[in-house]
Each structure stands twice: as structure tokens, then as C-alpha cells.
Write a protein that binds this DNA or RNA. Structure first.
Lengths: 211, 211, 211, 211
DNA sequence: GATGAATGAGGGTTCATTCAT
DNA sequence: TATGAATGAACCCTCATTCAT
């Protein structure tokens, strides 16, 4: 799954191991200084590898960026998937998922920001794959909305589902990429409001329109 | 207004002129290749300036990025401000503003994306200023929401206004930074849905919750 | 004539000047250590240029090799052409040319060897051009042989001319690339014998075959 | 005979075996990409050895080049020696040898070219040995010429023998290193002309001079 | 003010060789 | 003996910036 990154090394266990080191170090560095201003030497050093060894697990600096993006998406997706509940109605499951998603975003705000800012530096092939991963995460919500359509706990039309799902993602990721504007807001308040923006469940607030 | 960029040149008219050339050329280049992959030589050439002349109107490559971001924000803000209507109710003015805003985003999707992806490369001082400009644009909607609170054409609480304003901005800019996911959607359909996401004005759709 | 080498610099006079420095330094270095073991830093330093300046007059290290080969061929060709005499018979002109050619080879043995050993590292396009230059030099002898055919001072058939011309070149260049085997031979003796090999003019030695 | 190459391995049989693999692979690679552009990893892989194993049969990359040159010379020499005839006169034996030599050159043109282009990269000690091997081959012709002097089937003076022998070698190897200029010539025609260049045996062509 | 040649630090990457297993 | 991961010096080249003219 995803694009295969070549390696000179044969032992797959070791590859996994070393790449984990590389990714861990790189995430930190990329967050701190950005992809372009981070040197491969720094990455090697922070990974506990020599300059040469780094290139046995990766073919280019861009590969590292890809690995980083993939790793971040994986973690987000895993944590989101793990938190999927089995409440009776899709509405309740959706609300729960949104809450979980938002809390993942908060935990990984730097990482989310990283993807927003650096993924454009990926070569087309890898970029495509990263965007696909973003879609995979979005699809979790597409599914939940679909469920709501079926069990009628949500009222919406089929055609709007894709965009609504993206809205959910984006209104959540905002916490990461608009930090500067929201920093003084309480996170739980943010959660409450964004969920309400999507669902309008609060009494007498099904719309911000005056009835 | 904004951060002053130093110049060796005295004549302010000439400075304005030359910087316009620089910005025009840079926007295009940055969109095409990204900030880091664009060289100052390319910028100079595309601006019709010599390598040395460039540095008489600008002190560093980062200054150019700043000029570019500022210019983009200015244009967005101008066009948004110009389109502010004088409808009776704030609700109507808001709806009109959102529509205008979205159409500006569509016209300038590359530029919007540019700011999302490259502004992080600004030195802190300039970054701060750019974010402030983003806030200025957001404040247009803050004001409209406030108006709606006052003329009671909108129903919301004071505290939610800032975040709702940001939501409006972000749900609009999505068109630029989620193009890859939305490309096959009709723009007017996008507009309709996003406005509805914010306002829930469509009959029987004041909420996606089943009543 | 020849393949154009790009330069960032505009002033053609300066380009010529600087490239002369580069070539002069490189010939020496390439002869001493070979193309691959010579670094661009060494070349820059020996040329009296900075690392960066070097690359304003040349696009790659291979370009330098090309410039070097071209320069060597040019000099050989010039000196050969300059020495072309106007003796009555083609035979005499040929003998004179061969003598001159051999003395050029002796003066430039290192350079001749350089081309033999390093031209293979040229990119195809440039290699082709270098070989063409080699042919140009060969053609000097082709012409002389042709003349001899016409004025009947030489007895040979048209079809053998090309190969004989190449033989002349190669039997001369031997002095450079077989030095190790010939070093203890007197140069004038070498000249005498090689010319005799081609012309068999010495009394009673028109062939090494016993009559 | 030749320079001893060190090895960590004891069993001489195994050494011979492995080095044969190494040489076979390297010849091909060096011909294809040149010595410097061929990596030891490629050699190891193509030899069916591991990176480390390679260095148990050879102490450096240059050693491999030496082995390669030696092998090529050996094969040329062997094939030349094998073809030595026992015709009555030295002249006839010489003509036969030249024909054989030329056909060896044709079969091994890539290898001959390889030695011309890469032997310069050998460390002095090894280079000396390789040149000596070249001399050994030359000496085959020295001997034949000497024989001709003795049985008087050739007319030449003792002092010219060494150079004539080298001329024979070089006029033959031309087929390899001047391929680009001669490619459209028929090989048998080449043979005929080159032998005639040396021997001038064709009727009425004992010299290219008009009598 | 303008030009464009010059600077030089530093970047990503390679690869001959070594060495722990 | 064999393996293949690790090392790290070194390479070619780029480019933001400066400065003599």
C-alpha cells in the first residue's frame, strides 16, 4: 500500500527499524525548520545514522518527506479508526468520530501543519499517494454520513456528502493551520463549536438564521 | 501599513514601479515552481531587472516573498471590500459577501494556495504581518456577523463570531487547497453548499439533523 | 564551428579570456592526474577563479574536457596548417608535412596522450565533435595524398588514401602513446623511420622485402 | 609472472575461480561504462559475489583493472602464439602472424580499446607490468622480423626492427581505437592494406613512390 | 542607479572500503 | 569464508548576495 521506496538493504525488519528512526528525527526537524532548510546531514545525525547509511534506506531527500507524510497520515488514520464507536445511530457515531478526530488533530497539530506546508515539495507520484491518504481519512466521514443517510439519523442529500466530509476534515485541521488566530481559544470550546457548525444540534440553534 | 522593506533607491515612485514588476514576476514563478525552487536570477530576469538592481529594491529573497504575500492579500481584500453591498439586512449582506469572497478565491486559487504553502518561509516579523493581513480579511466577516447580531437577522452568540468568521474563510479557501479533491465539482454547486453549510438557509435544511 | 558551450557571462571577450585560463590550467591538471581525479575545485584554483566563477564559463566538468580537447586539436591543426609548404611536388609537400606533424606531436605529446585517454569521457555530442576535429587533421594528409595522385608524384590508388592518411596520423601519434616503448629512441631517428615506413624513399629500401 | 595480487583467501584454486568471475564481469562493465563509472558494487553483483567477498580476492578497485588488463593481454598473446605457423620463410610466417593478429584485434576490439583508455588509471607498479605485457606481444613480431633478417626473406636493418614491430602492433590496433573513422571499411580490405603498408608486397607497389 | 561578474559556503549524493556478525 | 550494513570523505554543482565599474 502506498508507493514503494527502494532500499539497498535487504533485511525488511531492519529497514522498518531504521526508517522509523529517520522519520522520527525528520518530523521533528521538518517541523522546526521546514523541509528545505533541513539538511540531510542533520537528518542523518539526528537519526543516529551516518551520511551514507541514510541513503541505504532512502533514495533521496524527497523520499524522506514522503515517508514522513505517510507516517503522519497512517497515525492519524489509525487513531481515528481505533476510536470508531458502535453507538446505535450514525449521528452518535459521527459526533463521536468528530470528537476523536479533533483530539487527534490537537495531539498532532505540528504534523498536520507539516503536511499542509511541505507536501507540495513531493514529486508528483508521491504527492498523489499522499493526497490519496488524505482522502482515505476523509472517507471515514463519508462512510459515517452515508450511514446517517441510511438510518435516517441525519438529514442530507447524497450529493452533498463528499463536500460535507471535506468540510469536517478542514474545520478540524483548522486547529493546526490557523493556530495563530485561535490560540487563545479553549480547545473544548473549539470542539463544541465546530461540531455544532456541522451538525447544528444545539437547542434552538439548528441554524444561525433567526427563524 | 505593514512592515517597511528597505531600499537603496530614493524615489518612492520608482520603488513602487519596480516592486510591482518584481511581484508580478514572482507570483507567477512561485506558483509554478515554489518559493525555494525559484532563484533570484529567474526573478530578476522575469522582472526585467539585472541581478544587482533587484537587490536595490529588496534586501533579500524573503523580502520578495513578503511583498508577494502582501500583494495577494491586498488584492483579495480590495476585491472583497469593493463588493460589500448595502442590502438591508446583515444576513443578506453576509450572503452576498460570501458569494463574492468565493468568487475571488476561485479567480485567485493559485495565489491563495501560494500563501498557504509558502508563507511559513517568511521571517517571523514578516510572517506575523502576513497573518495579520489574513485576519484583516477575516474581520470583514466578523463585522458582518456582528451586524447580524445587532440587526437580529442572524442568530448567534457573540463568542462564536470569531470562529465562525474563520470557518467562512477556511471553507472558502478550501476551493484552493483541496482542489485535488473537489476538482470535479461544479463551482456554483460548491458555493451553494458552502454557504448553506454556514447559514443553513435552504428550506427544511436548517440542520442536517433530522428534526 | 564546434559545439557551442553556454555561458552565463555576456562579454565574449571575457569569455574567451577566462576559458583560456581554464583550459591552460586544466590541460596541466588532466595530464598530471587524469580527468576523473582532477576536481573542479583544483581547476578553479589553478585557473585563478572561484568555484562559482568557473561555472559561469562552463556548464559542467565535461564541458571543460571538451574545451581542452578542442583547444589541443586547434593548436595541432594550426601548427600543421601553418607549416604546409609550397614545394613543387606533392611528394615533397607531403614529406615536409609529415616532418612538421611529427614535430608538433613531440611538442605536444602530453596533450596528444590526453586526448587518447580522456576523450572517451565526453558526452556523445561532444565526443562526436572531437572526433571530427581529429578527422580534420587527418584530412590535411588526405588532401596531400590526393595531390600526389594527381601530380603523379605518388603512386597509390584512390581507395587507399583514407587509410593511409590515418596510418600517417597514428604512426606519428605513436610517439605520444607508446613513449614507454620508444623513449630511448632518438626523435629524429623516429621521424626518419616513420616517414620511410610510409614513403619507402630510401635507396634500396622501397620495401622491406628482398627483391 | 606479473605482479602478485594479495588475497585473504588461502585456497589458490578458489582464488583463480573467483577472480575469473570478477574479470569476466568487469571486462563487460568497463567496456560498457568505463572504469571510473563502474562501481565496485556493480562488479560484485555481476560477479555473483557479495560486496565484502570481492575484497577478499582483490585489494582495491585498481587491482581489478590490473587483472582485467592482464587477462586481456594474456588472451591476445595466447591466441597470437597459438596461430604462429611454421612456414618456411620468416616472411611467410610474418604475414601469417599479422593476419592472425589482426583477426584477434577484430574479435577483441572492445578489449583493446579498454586497455588504451583505462590502463592509465593503474598505479605505476601495475601500469609498468601491463606495458611489459604489451611489449611481450610486440616481441612476437620482433622475433619474426629478426628471423627474416636472418633467413634474408626480409630486407631491413637490425636497428629498425623494434619500431617496425611497434608499427605493426599499432597499425593493427587502429582497428579498435579508430573504429569511428574506419567503420565503413571492409575488414578484409583493412587487413590487406595494412599488411601491404608494412610489407609492400603487392606487384608494382613496393613503394607508394612512383619509380 | 544600473550592471553583471564574482564569491564561497554549503547542499544532496556517491562509493571505495571496512568490519561486525 | 561470506555477508551486507556501515562509514565518511569527497565530489560536482548551485545560488543568494556583494561589489567594482
Amino acid at each position: 500500500m502506498g508507493v514503494q521506496i527502494e532500499s539497498t538493504v535487504k533485511d525488511p525488519e531492519r529497514i522498518r527499524e531504521r526508517r522509523k528512526q529517520i522519520v522520527r528525527a525528520s518530523v521533528e526537524l521538518f517541523i522546526e525548520k521546514g523541509f528545505h532548510k533541513t539538511t540531510t546531514r542533520e537528518i542523518a545525525k539526528a537519526s543516529g545514522l551516518s551520511n551514507g547509511a541514510l541513503y541505504e534506506y532512502v533514495k533521496s531527500k524527497e523520499d524522506i518527506l514522503y515517508l514522513v507524510c505517510q507516517h503522519i497520515h497512517q497515525e492519524i488514520h489509525e487513531r481515528l479508526a481505533d476510536s470508531l464507536s458502535s453507538h446505535e445511530t450514525a449521528l452518535e457515531r459521527l459526533r463521536h468520530a468528530m470528537t476523536s478526530f479533533l483530539s487527534v488533530i490537537r495531539d498532532m497539530e505540528d504534523e498536520v501543519l507539516l503536511i499542509y506546508q511541505e507536501s507540495k515539495s513531493l514529486p508528483p507520484h508521491h504527492l498523489h499517494d499522499v493526497l490519496q491518504n488524505e482522502q482515505v481519512i476523509t472517507d471515514v466521514f463519508v462512510q459515517l454520513l452515508q450511514d446517517g443517510l441510511e438510518d435516517k439519523s441525519l438529514e442530507l442529500t447524497e450529493e452533498t456528502i463528499p463536500l460535507v466530509a471535506h468540510d469536517i476534515i478542514v474545520l478540524g485541521q483548522m486547529w493546526a493551520f490557523r493556530r495563530w488566530a485561535i490560540r487563545d481559544m479553549d480547545f473544548s470550546e473549539f470542539v463544541r463549536q465546530q461540531i455544532n457548525m456541522i451538525l447544528r444540534t444545539e437547542p434552538d440553534h439548528s441554524s444561525i438564521l433567526r427563524t
